[in-house]
Computed example of a mutant assay.
Amino acid sequence: MPLVVLLHGRGSHEKEIINLADHLPATVAYAAVRAPIAEGSGFAWFANRGIGRPRPDSLAETMRWFREWLDDEAPEGRPVILIGFSGGAAFAGGLLLADPDRYAGSATASPRPPWKTSPIG
């Protein structure tokens, strides 16, 4: 069964974004993951140098952390779809760019790409 991973925005947490699963197809499994960096009353996926400008070292470290979690939860071969909002969307973009073959797809809302310039052209 495919796994849809819900990635909350900066300053939020997994208990807020998991509510999306009630409005999505019941034919897949859902997991809402809490970002590892404390941020105000919530959590963040990466330290930044300003809104939507991740520190590369922080983004890389969190991506490694996430991949370890994902490989335990959804071994290679299980389809994984990332759904992210805001900072979670930027994080999903970083994951997709780093390893596009690992993910079956993604959906993002209010993303800020995790790169300085367009990766295209």
Score class of each variant (00 low, 15 high):
Met1Cys: 01
Met1Trp: 00
Pro2Asp: 14
Pro2His: 09
Pro2Phe: 04
Val4Phe: 05
Leu6Val: 07
Leu7Asp: 10
His8Met: 03
His8Cys: 07
His8Pro: 11
Gly9Gln: 06
Arg10Gly: 12
Gly11His: 13
Glu16Tyr: 06
Glu16Leu: 12
Asn19Gln: 13
Leu20Asn: 05
Asp22Ala: 15
Asp22Ile: 00
Asp22Phe: 11
Asp22Gln: 13
His23Asp: 08
Leu24Gly: 10
Ala26Phe: 00
Thr27Ala: 14
Thr27Gln: 07
Ala29Thr: 09
Tyr30Gly: 06
Ala31Ile: 09
Ala31Ser: 12
Pro36Ala: 03
Ile37Arg: 06
Ser41Asn: 11
Gly42Met: 06
Phe46His: 11
Phe46Pro: 04
Phe46Arg: 01
Ala47Trp: 11
Asn48His: 14
Arg49Thr: 08
Gly50Pro: 01
Gly50Ala: 12
Ile51Gln: 04
Ile51Phe: 14
Ile51Asp: 03
Ile51Glu: 09
Gly52Trp: 09
Gly52Phe: 09
Pro54Thr: 07
Pro54Leu: 08
Arg55Cys: 02
Pro56Cys: 00
Pro56Ala: 13
Asp57Ala: 15
Asp57Ile: 02
Asp57Pro: 06
Asp57Cys: 02
Asp57Leu: 04
Asp57Ser: 14
Ser58Pro: 05
Ser58Phe: 12
Thr62Cys: 13
Met63Trp: 11
Met63Tyr: 12
Trp65Lys: 01
Phe66Asp: 04
Trp69Leu: 14
Trp69Tyr: 15
Asp71Glu: 15
Asp72Phe: 04
Asp72Ala: 15
Pro75Ser: 11
Pro75Asp: 08
Glu76Val: 13
Glu76Asn: 03
Leu82Gln: 07
Ile83Tyr: 04
Gly84Asp: 06
Gly84Leu: 03
Gly84Thr: 04
Gly84Glu: 05
Phe85Val: 13
Phe85Ala: 06
Phe85Pro: 02
Phe85Glu: 04
Ser86Gly: 05
Ser86His: 09
Ala90Leu: 01
Ala92Ser: 13
Ala92Trp: 06
Gly93Ser: 04
Leu95Met: 15
Leu97Ala: 15
Ala98Thr: 12
Ala98Ile: 09
Asp99Trp: 04
Pro100Trp: 10
Arg102Lys: 08
Ala104Leu: 03
Gly105Glu: 10
Ala107Pro: 03
Thr108Lys: 00
Thr108Pro: 00
Thr108Ser: 11
Thr108Phe: 11
Arg112Val: 14
Pro114Tyr: 02
Trp115Tyr: 11
Trp115Pro: 00
Thr117Phe: 07
Pro119Gly: 00
Pro119Gln: 01
Ile120Thr: 06
Gly121Tyr: 03
Gly121Asn: 11
